[in-house]
């Protein structure tokens, strides 16, 4: 954006950016430093040695993957419908959906529990997957609708003239063309699903179903609170998300720039 031609100008800008970055980097440094304090790598070994750690990791993966798939499918369909198909009272439906963004999780727990037990979902993955997905869909639709809006109508009209129905339009146009915004939906959904603590805590009680966010509990007790291992588990827990972000970063940014939220 800025055009800096002079050398001193560029250096000044670089220094300015670096100074501005310090408050962002500082807590990360504190975290990593803390994770290595005391027993050093031993902290990480202790975390990995928590009985069932592998199981927890896999559970988190299953839940995150299922939430992502569910959110992705539902969102793509809805965004396509909102953006390119005919819906009477379209904006009413859209706002009904957006209003869900305002809901704090507190409000969901009670009714969910009542329903879960009735349907036999309590203590199954579904008890966590469904509410997590429900909470993610509104934001994801908001992002994706704008993205699909920006795809030229002519594409879809041409397809229709060629005899393709909505379903084929969806499969052959929407899915491939929305890969960038799909990456953004994936990242945001992954973060929400992977980091969630509340739903697994309340709705999953078998040790075999516990998720990785509950691992710090092994080091937090009423009368002992093992800071170094909590931080080490924080670092380990964050790794998959950081890897996912880094590997999808370019697609992610492209998706947001075409859709952006308006």
């Amino acid at each position: 954006m800025f055009e800096i031609r002079s050398r001193t100008g560029r250096i000044f800008l670089q220094i300015f950016a670096t100074v501005l970055l310090i408050p962002f980097a500082f807590p990360l440094v504190v975290m990593v430093k803390g994770a290595f304090a005391g027993e050093g790598l031993g902290n990480f070994q202790a975390v990995l040695r928590v009985p069932g750690f592998g199981r927890f990791f896999v559970n988190s993966l299953i839940i995150a993957a299922a939430v992502i798939v569910l959110v992705y499918v539902v969102t793509m369909m809805a965004a396509f419908g909102f953006a390119k198909l005919h819906i009477r009272f379209r904006e009413v439906y859209f706002w009904l959906l957006l209003a869900c963004l305002t809901l704090p999780e507190v409000v969901l727990l009670a009714p969910l529990f009542a329903t879960d037990t009735k349907l036999g979902l309590y203590d199954t993955y579904w008890a966590v997957i469904l509410p997590l997905a429900a909470l993610q869909v509104p934001f994801a639709v908001l992002l994706t609708r704008n993205f699909i809006n920006s795809l030229p109508d002519e594409l879809f009209e041409a397809a229709r003239v060629d005899g393709a129905n909505s379903y084929r339009g969806f499969i052959y146009l929407v899915i491939p063309l929305t890969r960038p915004i799909g990456a953004a939906v994936l990242i945001f959904t992954l973060v929400a699903a992977w980091n969630d603590y509340l739903f697994p805590l309340v709705f999953l009680q078998s040790p075999d179903l516990q998720t990785i966010t509950l691992v710090p509990q092994f080091f937090v007790g009423e009368f002992s609170n093992d800071q170094t291992k909590i931080l080490a588990s924080a670092v380990i827990t964050a790794i998959p998300e950081i890897v996912a972000y880094l590997s999808l970063q370019r697609l992610f940014e492209r998706g947001l720039s075409a859709g952006a939220i308006k």
Binding site: P104, E105, V106, V107, L108, L109, A110, P111, L112, F113, A114, T117, L135, F139, A192, N195, D196, Y197, L198, L201, V202
Partner: peptide, 18 residues
């Protein structure tokens, strides 16, 4: 956006059931 726990309404649920 700030998605995280309020454990609250667990209370309600259970009582309803109980």
């Amino acid at each position: 956006m700030r998605l995280l726990p309020v454990f609250a309404a667990a209370t309600l649920a259970i009582s309803a059931l109980a």
